[in-house]
Design a protein around this nucleic acid. Structure first.
Length: 578
DNA sequence: GCCGTTTTCGGCCCGACTGTTTTCAGTCG
């Protein structure tokens, strides 16, 4: 069983947890967490790096010691140091971190004084009212822990961005109606357009006497107030979403927005630069001694540490600071760059709107073209088309194109990649289409090797243009199938195929890490909504957010091109004269 | 445990809020 990056990350995080409870040096603990993150977010396989003899200590936050430990893990699948720690600190004890309000110190006390080693032990001690007798604990702490158990039982997941949008939108509208309020801005991972959001962070500025905090905690959807202060409050909504609200003065707006947008690791890196320049950055501004140098806008804050403005989607400490220093930040794609959608369905198969309805909707989006890509025959549940049905549909598209003005319908197909890597329809019909999206819709449980081979073999077909929703995952519902995505992207680079970024907020497939990897290899990306309705076309913005997180520029994207340019790219791939 | 534009040793981002104590440790973001 090969060791995956996630396995290494898991072991390092686990070590960090146990060291934390043991009361170890906090910086040593942070080193393990940083290393876990570095390895976890790597687009290349750490096992392969070890096999190739790469110098792991070149990776951020990995020195000689951790490089050795990684090699041990790759070789044996485990690490003696962790096993040693687990004899010293009961491994289940780290479960207690799930209870908000319990940190390493309190967990250690619970273990030492009440012999609590598991969540179950904790529950029992709560029932016996033993905890309130401990030093540093009281009735209120007990009560909070009980509520945390209830929250855990509901097992809240991170919110999909689209759901966060809805919840946040309503709350922002409510807050904007507060008397004396000036700015209301959602920060945090929402602003960074992460595919899922843990908590919502909202930043406000206001004039004197605006009762913002009261107004916030009075919101009708508030279930529980966790904290309420003058500048910062936290609540849990009925939807079990935690919302943190922070209020600052106008002169601190930029600094606060930067701080509350994160990510944490990005902020730490920026603050380190400040420290080197004898400056201090906090949520109120950039300071030299007592003197405030900046704070009103984020741009000012960055300028003080010699950086250009860094777009929120890049702020993950994945090299954006180094590139900003060199003046080499990507010029990120925006929604205005998009000229069309290359993956949509109509009522001919499992969509809900007719051809013309979809065409007119696309026109309203300002698109030049719309790719119609029905399912192919193998996908029976969706009413997939065989060659004859597809030919009829193509005729219908041709007829409609004669009638339509300002929008061109492209004749495409979302053709199934079969188990053996062949495509579900024959070359004779595929060659007549403008382009194809090729997708895996079956045999999700093939081995990693077989799945990878299957997809790469499909790319050998000259009519293969775009790999649809490449990992097959559904966020919070279905994990990606086992596949060596790095190899798939490398194959796409060699064979001149494109990768889809499926913009449906339930998919957002490819993810940011692989998008960045694809871009580095020069693989083109198609950002497509996979719309099954008129409304579905609106999801393009989620794709844009994800693309920006993947450092994607307009040049990297297929559907920023005119149809003329696109046709050339497709024809070249097919081996047609251009 | 990592790392280097004051460094191979001595630093490591910074502040708000809670609960339990009476001035602050712990937790969180």
């Amino acid at each position: 069983m090969p060791v995956h990056n996630a396995d290494v990350a898991f072991i390092f995080n686990r070590i960090a947890d146990l060291l934390d409870i043991r009361g170890d040096n906090p910086f040593r603990i942070r080193a393990y967490r940083n290393a876990a993150r570095t390895v976890g977010e790597l687009s290349t396989s750490i096992s392969e790096m070890v096999d190739k003899g790469d110098d792991l200590s070149k990776l951020a936050g990995i020195g000689k010691d951790l490089a050795d430990k990684i090699e041990k893990i790759v070789a044996t699948g485990s690490l003696p140091f962790l096993e040693e720690l687990e004899t010293e600190v009961p491994p289940d004890l780290s479960e207690l971190f799930k209870i908000r309000g319990l940190g390493p110190r309190k967990i250690a006390i619970l273990h030492e004084q009440l012999d609590i080693s598991t969540l179950m032990d904790l529950q029992r001690s709560l029932d016996n009212k033993k905890i309130r007798q401990l030093n540093g604990f009281g009735k209120k702490t007990e009560q909070n822990m009980r509520e945390e158990f209830k929250r855990l039982a509901r097992s809240r997941q991170r919110l999909k961005l689209s759901i966060a949008d809805e919840i946040a939108g309503q709350l922002v509208d409510y807050l904007k109606k507060t008397k004396g309020i000036k700015k209301v801005k959602i920060a945090g991972s929402y602003r960074r357009r992460r595919e899922t959001v843990g908590d919502l962070d909202i930043l406000v500025t206001h004039g004197k006497d605006a009762q913002v905090m009261e107004r916030f905690t009075d919101y009708e959807d508030v279930k529980k107030i966790i904290a309420q202060g003058e500048t910062r409050s936290s609540v849990v909504l009925k939807s079990d979403v935690q919302v943190d609200l922070r209020a600052v003065d106008e002169e601190s707006y930029g600094a606060a927005l930067h701080y509350f947008t994160g990510s944490k690791t990005h902020n730490i890196a920026v603050r380190k630069i400040a420290v080197r320049n004898n400056l201090k950055i906090n949520e109120y501004g950039v300071f030299k001694g007592e003197k405030r140098l900046a704070g009103h806008t984020e741009k000012e804050v960055y300028e003080q540490v010699g950086l250009p403005f860094i777009p929120p989607e890049l702020r993950e400490n994945r090299g954006e600071i180094e590139d900003a220093q060199k003046g080499e930040l990507p010029f990120l794609l925006t929604i205005k760059d998009i000229r069309g959608d290359l993956h949509t369905h109509t009522s001919k198969t499992d969509g809900h709107a007719g051809l013309e309805e979809m065409a007119r909707a696309a026109s309203r989006h300002g698109y030049d073209y719309l790719g119609i890509t029905e399912h192919s025959r193998h996908l029976k549940v969706a009413g997939g088309l065989d060659a004859a049905e597809l030919r009829k549909h193509m005729d219908a598209i041709d007829r409609l194109n004669e009638k339509l003005d300002g929008i061109l319908l492209l004749k495409g197909i979302e053709v199934d990649i079969l188990k053996d890597g062949s495509l579900d329809l024959g070359d004779d019909i595929l060659r007549e289409l403008d382009f194809t999206v090729c997708s895996v819709h079956s045999e999700f449980s093939l081995s990693r090797t077989k799945q990878t081979e299957r997809i790469i073999r499909a790319m050998d077909n000259r009519y293969f243009q775009i790999l649809g929703h490449p990992s097959g995952r559904l966020i919070n519902e279905r994990p990606p199938y086992e596949v060596d995505m790095e190899k798939v992207i490398q194959a796409a680079a060699e064979k001149n195929c494109a990768m889809e970024l499926n913009a449906n907020p339930d998919r957002l497939d490819l993810n940011d890490i692989y998008l960045k990897f694809a871009r580095e290899l020069g693989v083109k990306v198609a950002i497509s909504t996979d719309a099954h309705s008129v409304e579905g076309l609106n999801n393009m913005r989620y794709g844009i957010g994800q693309a920006r997180r993947g450092w994607i520029e307009a040049e990297d994207v297929l559907n920023t091109r005119t149809w003329k340019e696109l046709k050339e790219i497709f024809n070249r791939r097919k081996g047609f004269p251009v």
